[in-house]
Amino acid sequence: MSRTTPETAGPGTARPRATARVPADGRTPSSDTIVEVRGLSRDFRVRDGLKVRRLTAVDDMSWSIAAGEAVGYIGANGAGKSTTIKMLAGILVPTAGEVLTCGLRPVKDRKKLARRIGVVFGQRSQLWWDLPVRESFGILAAIHSLSRAQERTRTDELVETLDMGDYLGTPVRQLSLGQRMRAEVAAALLHRPELLVLDEPTIGLDVLSKQRLREFLVRERAEHGTTLLLTTHDMGDVERLCDRILVVDHGRLAYDGSLDGLGRTVGAERVLIVDLAEPRAELAVPDARHLRSEGGGLRQHLAFDPATTTAARVLAAVSEQADVLDLTIAEPAIEDVVRRIYERATTSSS
């Protein structure tokens, strides 16, 4: 840990240019690159009984994010998402390659960087669980050296847009998950970071809470130009928040591009899950794909694209073949989407 004097410069200080280097592929460096990752790799040593194995969590990744973008960083569990985020934030040192966040080297310039990024770890609270929300904000304002005036303006703004007025005086441990996530996001945005990193921000939230949070993030981005990078298992997050997605698979970048085009049809698919009165073979329904069966055919998963058919039509077709006891409509699991995107990416490139 470098133990230099803590920086006291406020948000008004001139910021270093984001990127001064010319990328190896000769692209014109954009002056407002927020995250730049080059040949980034990260290994872990895992103890397995007495043996020590090397596990590569991130494997030679290169990509960058421009200021103002909203990027979904998706992949299956263990694909290397959290490891990447920890390297961007200066918590982990890369095994190889480089990363520049806001033009800074995250580990070396951690304290400077902390003033310019906000991170929400879905599972790790940065609030004080035994204090009212308001007090947590006050402490964070002190931690980020906001003046009283800045603190008041920003807190008021966040409280209003995130609709937190009702529970500002409530201790964090008594909040519902939805309320707490809104408070976490506000806490990460209090110091007006240029980059907001969200690790699974909507996990476990009910539909309404998800909707609220997404609306807020869209608005925050529009008003302040905050760059968003989010990892998620929720296709809804990706569709409604991101204009670009990065798909990682086994530590490697599998896809980098817009949701339009390649991703859309996959991402927009819905899944109809039907419970049948008696076991049936795989149902064949026009305009729908059979994904899988459970319980020997008692429960079947059918994927369809809302652009070509409707849930009602698929259901009607199913009802002609079998008695439907119960049904659910779900967004596709991100693992399915990743697999399909990955398949497409490999077939189109070969």
Partner: peptide, 9 residues
């Protein structure tokens, strides 16, 4: 990890 996100030693 949360401490890493704050601008103090």
């Amino acid at each position: 990890d949360v401490l890493y996100l704050r601008p103090q030693p």
